[in-house]
Design a protein around this nucleic acid. Sequence first.
DNA 1: TCAAAATGTTTGGTGTACCAAACTCGCAAA
DNA 2: TTTGCGAGTTTGGTACACCAAACATTTTGA
Lengths: 170, 170
Amino acid sequence: MTKKKALTESMEDYLEAIWLLERVHDAARAKDIAEHLGVQRGTVTGALKGLEEKGLINYAPYSHITLTPKGAEIAGEINRRHKVILNFLTEVLRIAPETAEATACRMEHVVEGTVLDRLVCFIDFVHQCPRAGNDLLRSFTNYCESGRLDWDQCQTCLDDCRDRFQSQHP
Amino acid sequence: MTKKKALTESMEDYLEAIWLLERVHDAARAKDIAEHLGVQRGTVTGALKGLEEKGLINYAPYSHITLTPKGAEIAGEINRRHKVILNFLTEVLRIAPETAEATACRMEHVVEGTVLDRLVCFIDFVHQCPRAGNDLLRSFTNYCESGRLDWDQCQTCLDDCRDRFQSQHP
DNA sequence: TCAAAATGTTTGGTGTACCAAACTCGCAAA
DNA sequence: TTTGCGAGTTTGGTACACCAAACATTTTGA
């Protein structure tokens, strides 16, 4: 039933919107979807038909809109992609929240499995490795602002890093 | 002349293809553009007209195809985006070349100025900061493969890191 | 309860991006 | 010089994604 042909970016956006709105109310309303995505109400109707045909949402004209299990699975995955990318942009690259959000919305359609997994891994690694961590990211922020590395501070930075590790792993 | 309305992703792809092909021969040929982008020859003709109208390429039916200065500037910028993203994916995230290339092709349309600059900055930082560098990336690769950090090695790693810095900055 | 208001749908139309196939042009070999 | 083939173009058609405005239904509040 209803082949698993890759969804268009647009359809992914609709699924994601429904997923989010379901979490606010019990079901998504066409008007809210339209608002969320910045399109006309009429456009939503067409998209809903498409998603219904693919078996991703429960929908009939004038009915409530909910995700099917299959739809929820896909929507959840899209949301996961969104969150991972957003996390990377804000936590690692230190991008401003609005820019990060906008970029995540576009990147989430473009980054597939293996790359996403690697990104997750990288974020984890940065949080766990004693040589990385938040203070490395703070150094990065300095580097971004000043455009250069302050070699004089490196020695202290390295010593601090080592001391911190030793105090945490005696 | 010819407003600077944002190019579509498709048009960016054509510009980039012409830019690349110009570097191989003196001018791009419609057939090669079609091949490069995996579309029919007829589709290329339509796209070329669009780019010509925007003043981005020199083109008339049956003529040679070259970029105008304006077109070359944009194409160069797209290519820069591509290279930066590819660099990040391969050098930092250690993604396989083919996957990285494919992802870069899609991401280059989606990542705008500030994010790209930050990415450049991050790559530079990783290459310059004594606490980062290639051996941190090597640790990351290990972490990806084993799924965990080897705390026993952290002490040595930290010491090595410090020694390396001291020997380079006496 | 019963009309507005709000929400949802339909219709007709736009722009982009593509394909397949027919057609045209230009060049190179016979 | 002509012709035939490869490269380029045109034409007619599809699919997607959208809008504006007319229309239908549902909800609501007086």
